[in-house]
Design a protein around this nucleic acid. Structure first.
Length: 108
DNA sequence: AGGGTGACTGCTA
DNA sequence: GTAGCAGCCACCC
């Protein structure tokens, strides 16, 4: 049983609160949590005990690129997430970059 | 108690 | 424009 700290809980809550068809960045998310360190957010998602309940694919980096695993798009698992995002209206490039940067939600 | 890691970011060469 | 280095916070061993 993994101990979900308050910080992680906030991360999951924030991600879960992201409206459909929208995405956000690690930086803004971290800033909203009052940390300013996206690395900490990445840690929380890495330890993500909530699985699909927490759509981590909605979180992208500052370069508007999807963060699948190890910061790079590797594996068809991530590709599936991209497809899922596309179904919500968020289309990504074949390189994993967000096509429409206006879909990035900076406040929610 | 201390050190190392990481799904990141930003600056500099 | 591309590549490499340092800084940052939280979690794990």
């Amino acid at each position: 049983m993994r101990v979900v700290t308050a910080f992680e809980q906030q991360v999951y809550e924030a991600i879960s609160a992201i409206p459909c068809g929208k995405v956000t960045t690690y930086k803004y998310l971290a800033q909203r949590l009052g940390c300013g360190s996206a690395q900490a957010v990445g840690q929380a998602l890495k330890r993500n005990p909530h699985a699909p309940q927490v759509p981590c694919h909605r979180v992208i980096n500052s370069q508007l690129k999807i963060a699948g695993y190890m910061g790079q798009v590797s594996g068809e698992e991530v590709q599936r997430k991209i497809d899922l995002l596309a179904a919500e209206g968020v289309e990504f490039d074949s390189d994993g970059y967000l096509e429409d940067c206006s879909l990035v939600l900076e406040e929610w």
